[in-house]
Design a protein around this nucleic acid. Structure first.
Lengths: 343, 343
DNA sequence: TTGAAAGCGTTACCAG
DNA sequence: CTGGTAACGCTTTCAA
């Protein structure tokens, strides 16, 4: 573990106070109003060129930077889009989506702010977010209807949730993870498999996804002679080895491994145990990560597709312009089976 | 500049204006000051219990949430720690570090805000950050000295950079990636290898890390009879296949693959080409990801250790309390070789 | 073309 | 114990 030593605090030097628009005005020999006009390029008022120059000069010299809080206080609104950091461990897919979204919202002149979700959950968290008076809030995962109400009452013109369930009063980008499990199980069933295992990660924060996926798998084989069995698995070699050791006693001929990473973990363990993939047990993952293509046999997978950041940005912008509109519901999680060699 | 047309704002349902502390005061039949005292639990003043109740009641009824901007305007400072989103693609290591850091800063009562780094870079970006008047700024990657100056002038009591090079006026958590390459190359050299390749990812934003790693590898074999060769490689199977196809013509007997993911990519390609690992070519990655342990042969790697989020949070807190102190410099990137089977 | 002044929501100081 | 009042930095209306 890398240690950063703690040093004692010596006497601090007096910090030069931060320059305000009044300071700029003083230095330029004009009024604060003029400074504001010049720096914001206000169209309605025309300021003489020499004055403009003096103001810009003064601002540069002082290193003046406007105070966002003061500005939005006066304006009565901000262009801050707040997005709580997700509670679940994020993969490359989601990271890319977030990046795209931030970029797109930036183009629309919003300031995207990710709020570090440290302590409280539920309404408590919503209140903390509301203090920042964001114009819109994008919530990965879910949120109670009371949370939505708190945010709206505090001036948020759009609340968008991004999870499995719609919430009263908020726009919803629905990610139906049941479909993922459904697709996987149906694929395995189509390939002639009948006793299907579904990996359930033991890691925290993943039940939100794994439970619906299991449910979807169940639904897929409903009314057939096939069975679906949940298989708890921690993301460690030992856990996988234990599962593999009792594999034959489980009598499964296929497994949906939650995602590609768990699939890789399990595939190794099964192969080490002498279980042939796919001959003895078919295996399918999800996410279509690069690593699946690199395994031998190449891993079948369910490719997930998140909406484009641009589309979500557009939704936000629309909602901000028309806060009263009825909440939109969009099914956004594309799920398609990519058949390779492991199934 | 790309313009996305803004939809015209239709008549929105009249939004009930957001309640202020004045509204609470009115409803509770007290003054705004009293509301403030009650809601902030000010110790110096004691308010009668019935009054307290009335105030709380009124606040709850109105759904009152304090306005952070107004508060910090009045207070003259905030407890916002601003962290621009990193420009490079982040791995699980870094994500975990960020999460830890946010948690730790939360414990110290800071509000962590990740700023979506959309458009401008350099001083322009620093100005945008400065508008939020954060009490501290944590910059992943680098920043010009002028950027630091802008932030300090705008009241940031601590600026911490988190990258390969120290910046004048800012605290620095130095991540010396030369060491990573050095350790890897020395390990390979110790194992008797003499013609060492170093994978250079072609993906954007990674040169910051790959260049020093190559340099470190060079340094490690400096003055010996060994050679070091840079190997451009994109993170795609085809690119890896092309590299593998001309592998024997390169005459290398070892390769440091930048990280475990590139290592896995290259290992597959080499094996498909009939190149034995480690017999013909030794292979070592970096990051010590789970996937390395799952490969056959198991992947040797350079384990990286970032500082604990708690330590960095402590550094921030110290710096905030003592803005005048001379900037701290800490070497924080632990790099140790984990020898497995691929080398 | 420029300046004075009001007000956004809070809190701290000081009278009552 | 409680309540008026001023001030934080900025924008904008109105007046000169």
């Amino acid at each position: 573990m890398v240690q950063i030593p703690k040093t004692p605090a010596p006497a601090s030097s007096a910090p030069r106070s931060v320059p305000t628009s009044a300071d700029v005005a003083r230095l330029a020999g004009v009024s604060r109003a003029t400074v504001s006009y010049v720096l914001n390029n206000t169209g309605a008022v025309r300021i003489s060129e020499p004055t403009r120059r003096r103001v810009h000069e003064a601002a540069r010299e002082l290193g003046y930077v406007p105070h966002a809080a003061a500005r939005s206080l006066r304006a009565g609104h901000s262009r801050t889009v707040l997005m709580p950091a997700p509670a679940f461990p994020v993969g490359p897919l989601y990271s890319r989506f977030i990046g795209e979204l931030q970029w797109a919202l930036g183009r629309l002149d919003y300031t995207v702010v990710q709020y570090g979700t440290t302590g409280p959950h539920g309404d408590e968290a919503a209140r903390a977010w509301a203090e920042l008076r964001p114009v819109a809030v994008l919530v990965p995962g879910s949120l109670g209807p009371r949370g939505v109400e708190i945010l709206r009452r505090s001036g948020a013109r759009a609340v968008v949730t991004f999870g499995p369930e719609p919430v009263e009063g908020a726009h919803a980008l629905l990610m139906d993870h049941e479909t993922v499990g459904h697709r996987a199980a149906r694929h395995l069933h189509d390939r002639g498999r009948r006793r299907i295992g579904v990996v359930m990660p033991e890691e925290d924060g993943l039940e939100v996804f794994s439970a619906p996926r299991l449910e979807g798998a169940r639904r897929a084989v409903d009314g057939t002679d096939a069975t679906v069995t949940g298989l708890p698995l921690a993301y460690e070699e030992r856990s996988a080895a234990r599962l593999a050791a009792r594999w034959r006693s489980l009598g499964l001929d296929a497994v949906f491994a939650y995602n590609d990473e768990y699939a890789m973990l399990l595939m190794r363990a099964l192969q080490d145990e002498g279980v042939a993939v796919p001959a003895e047990t078919a295996l399918i993952g999800a996410d279509d990560l690069m690593l699946g293509r690199l395994l031998r046999p190449r891993l079948s997978t369910v490719r997930l597709e998140l909406p484009s950041g641009r589309d979500l940005a557009a939704l936000v912008d629309r909602a901000v312009h028309d806060p009263g509109a009825t909440p939109e519901r969009h099914e956004v999680l594309g799920a398609t089976v990519v058949h390779r060699e492991s199934s």
